[in-house]
Write a protein that binds this DNA or RNA. Structure first.
Lengths: 214, 214
DNA sequence: TAACAACCGGAGACTTCTTCTCCGCTTAGT
DNA sequence: ACTAAGCGGAGAAGAAGTCTCCGGTTGTTA
């Protein structure tokens, strides 16, 4: 059992976590620990004394955030209007992801690849599947949509936001709306010409070395 | 007037251009000249003797490719079915972009920022505008779509392809279809909640330092 | 309030990656 | 056969990131 930190050390630890939250959210996971330390107002040495490396810091930060994402999915199942439930989940996902570039990178690059996060991911999949199936059973979601379309869509929206952010923040809802209009079941839709990624394909993607450039 | 290259030098120049075409297309503009030289089967020294730097090589390669993109836009105006014309242009763009990661990066990072490419870009904008307006006047494209939506959509599709490529190439048409279904004028569409980027905003985006991560 | 273990800052050692140069050897062209 | 043009690729130079080390400071305990 590690004995408690001295008061100044504990305070610095909190400063670092807070700084990391902000810097990761704005600039992604590729920032240096040096930079986080500077933003926290402590020395690099202090940062490395508290967290063995950047990965440890990421883990400490994103566990509960991923948890919250799963919660969005399951709770959307209880909405009375099925389409609203679906839209609500996708919108909530997008809001989280848009607000936090680090979160996007954790989700799509599976940063850390450790067990705890893997467990969370395992609860993700059934949740998304349930929401998609419910919406399709109700006839409001186009029948050829698939659960893995959702993370792909989140990725697309995330990129729009990274790209547009320097001149306009909050552009992504425009494209979210567009895509939701394309997802809604309607007469006269064009059948989707390629099958969606299987869950297995998707998992493999997040586990392989990050494709340079998100 | 530079005097003609010796035969072996001219041949190596072609080898380098060909290698660059392939490597840029597959891996993007961030590959090193060393890598291109290796792929061409010549020494690095040779590469740097022929092209002052990577930028010169990029310029030599992408001028006519951009030209072809503009051509897609203008020729789509002559299709009898307006919606087919619109879809044809967007599809042609996507095919080009999906097949060539380097091209995507030239378009969105304005690599080089030189005059010749700027001129081409200037012809791009009116062409896209014309196609969008024609489709909206005919009532087949949703009225709240805008010309700058098209490059944004291309960017989204490009990212899907970069991401999915390691386990599945050619996934993007699925999402292209989805988005086109969302772009088509229909009763019951949700109004797009945020204005599109203006041309000016878009230009500024491509001119500022590349947002790290495409 | 003295004493010391814990902690701090940040210079810089190390590593990795990319760009580009230099020079001894080879070859095309006359 | 001679020589200017060209070749290859080791490695210099620089940029960027990770992490260590240590002289000086501070919280804590007695």
């Amino acid at each position: 059992m590690p004995r408690p930190l001295r008061a100044d050390a504990a305070r610095n630890r909190e400063l670092l976590l807070q700084a990391a939250r902000e810097v990761f959210a704005r600039r992604g996971l590729d920032v240096t620990l040096d930079e986080i330390a500077r933003h926290a107002g402590v020395g690099v040495g202090t940062a490395y004394r508290r967290f063995a490396n950047k990965e440890a810091l990421v883990e400490a930060l994103f566990e509960d955030q991923l948890d919250r994402m799963v919660h969005f999915a399951t709770s959307s199942l209880h909405r009375v209007d099925t389409w609203d439930g679906f839209v609500g989940m996708v919108t909530a996902f997008s809001e989280q992801m848009a607000a936090d570039r680090g979160l996007r990178e954790v989700v799509f690059r599976n940063y850390g690849r450790d067990d705890r996060m893997a467990q969370i991911r395992e609860r993700f999949v059934p949740a998304m599947e349930a929401v998609v199936r419910r919406a399709q059973d109700a006839g409001v979601l186009r029948p050829d949509a698939a659960p893995t379309d959702l993370p792909i869509i989140e990725m697309m929206l995330g990129v729009v936001d990274v790209f547009a952010e320097p001149v306009r923040s909050g552009l992504y809802p425009r494209y979210l709306t567009l895509i939701l209009d394309g997802l809604r079941a309607r007469p006269g839709l064009t059948p989707l010409p390629v099958p969606a990624l299987t869950h297995d394909e998707f998992d493999r993607l997040t586990l392989i070395p990050p494709p340079p450039g998100l």
